[in-house]
Simulated scan of single mutants.
Amino acid sequence: MGELARRLKYYRKARNLSVRELASLANVSVSYVYAIESGARGSNATKLGQIAEALGVRLSDLWGDTEHHE
């Protein structure tokens, strides 16, 4: 699993959101969230920005540009 996939899943679960709930909050498709979390799809900055906003994190937190502690 890639770093983006791992971080997205971490933040989603930390906020106690299902994939469906996150997709709805971020206004992206459920299949897009599943694809990112499984590492099957490359990232789209606009959609990832929407997801980051829905999670209450910075885009750089998802991309791994900052130090991350679990």
Rank of each mutant, 00 (worst) to 15 (best):
G2M: 05
G2Q: 03
E3S: 09
E3F: 08
L4E: 06
L4R: 01
L4T: 10
A5G: 02
A5E: 04
R6P: 03
R6K: 13
R7W: 04
L8E: 00
L8S: 04
Y10L: 08
Y11M: 00
Y11V: 06
R12G: 03
K13M: 15
A14W: 02
A14Y: 02
N16G: 11
L17Y: 06
S18D: 08
S18A: 07
V19D: 08
V19C: 05
V19L: 07
R20G: 00
R20H: 12
E21K: 13
L22K: 05
L22S: 00
A23P: 01
S24W: 12
L25C: 04
L25Y: 11
L25K: 13
S31P: 03
V33F: 14
Y34D: 05
Y34E: 10
A35E: 10
I36V: 13
E37D: 11
S38A: 13
G39Q: 09
G39N: 10
A40G: 14
R41L: 11
G42Y: 13
G42I: 13
S43Q: 12
S43V: 12
N44W: 14
K47D: 10
L48Y: 06
L48C: 06
L48Q: 07
G49V: 09
G49N: 01
Q50M: 11
I51M: 02
I51D: 04
E53V: 06
E53I: 11
A54C: 07
L55F: 09
L55R: 02
L55E: 05
G56M: 05
V57A: 03
L59N: 04
L62F: 09
W63D: 04
D65N: 13
E67R: 15
